[in-house]
Simulated assay, not measured.
Amino acid sequence: MLSETAYAKINLALHVRRRRDDGYHELETLFAFVDGGDRLSASPAEADSLVTHGEFASLIEDPFGNIVAKALSGLPHGKGWAVDLEKRLPVAAGLGGGSADAGAVFRMVERAHGLPDDWQARAARLGADVPACVLSTTCVGTGTGTELAPVQSDLAGTPVLLVNPRAAVPTGPVFKAWDGVDRGAMPSGSVREIALGGRNDLEAPAIVLCPAVADVLAALQFTDPFLARMSGSGATCFALYDEEAQRDRAAKKLAEKHPGWWQMTGSLR
């Protein structure tokens, strides 16, 4: 049996530069990954199958037509796999949940059979975040986010707190609500310098569609992180801390004040 964690993706910075003629957006983003997420396992079977369970499994509308099934069907992996998916990450949350699940499938196939030379193109066809989620290491993404340049991270091991107000925010409407203003390129430097000097251009449109994002960001700022920001198109926000004890105190404080919010603690990979 193979098993993999579908590591939660966060965007330490996300700069939207322009809307392209093909309808997609030109991006500059700094991907990072948390050391926790969904859990997948696979064992040989006569045909492919997928079983989902976990806190957020009920939000997957069509488990047999979802991105995990598509990843399986798009990769050589023998006769068949019986896949078990424990859905721990919220859906439509800015954490690359489905993309991370697909990325975990790619890594399992790589261990069992190796990946085809065009794996990155196959991953990109499933979604813009999927190639980065296959790697699940800190990298700069350009183009639509699929052109990747891995970077050494001086934030590896940094304590992180993820918080979601239990609101699903689909990506399409957030991009559609972006005002089209190019606010400049992502800065250069170390990962920490890019994160601190960067921004998320989707925060403002996401807050218009889901005001609770602003509440989460404000609550995180009061816990004294060195950075608090929305991830992706939301609604999940993250906070980075210098010490685990700070993160754990923040998690406890927010759980007491906002018991309805989802949260996850971890460290950056």
Results as ranks from 00 to 15, higher is better:
Asn11Leu: 06
Thr142Met: 10
Leu59Glu: 03
Arg249His: 11
Ala102Gly: 09
Arg17Lys: 04
Ala102Val: 10
Val83Arg: 10
Ala47His: 04
Thr265Glu: 15
Thr5Gln: 12
Leu2Ile: 01
Val181Gly: 02
Ser41Thr: 04
Pro116Met: 12
Phe175Asp: 09
Asn11Glu: 10
His53Ala: 11
Gly157Val: 04
Ala239Pro: 00
Val216Ala: 11
Asp38Ala: 10
Leu14Trp: 02
Gly145Leu: 10
Asp154Thr: 09
Asp129Ala: 10
Gly80Lys: 10
Pro116Ile: 10
Ala57Gln: 10
Glu243Arg: 14
Asp118Ser: 12
Leu126Arg: 05
Val213Ile: 15
Thr52Glu: 07
Pro90Ser: 09
Ala92Leu: 03
Ala93Thr: 04
Arg20Thr: 13
Leu162Met: 09
Ala235Thr: 01
Ala167Val: 14
Lys176Tyr: 00
Pro90Leu: 14
Phe238Gly: 02
Phe222Asn: 11
Asp248Leu: 15
Ala93Trp: 01
Asp117Trp: 02
Glu86Ile: 00
Asp48Pro: 00
Pro187Trp: 12
Leu89Cys: 02
Ala195Cys: 07
Pro170His: 02
Gly198His: 05
Ser267Arg: 15
Leu268Val: 01
Pro76Arg: 15
Leu240Gly: 05
Leu12Asn: 07
Ser136Ile: 00
Asp117Val: 04
Pro63Leu: 14
Thr5Asn: 13
Ile194Gly: 05
Leu75Asp: 03
Arg19Glu: 12
Tyr7Phe: 14
Val105Ala: 07
Gly197Ser: 15
Arg247Lys: 08
Phe56Met: 08
Phe33Ile: 02
Lys252Thr: 03
His77Cys: 03
Pro205Gln: 14
Gln152Cys: 06
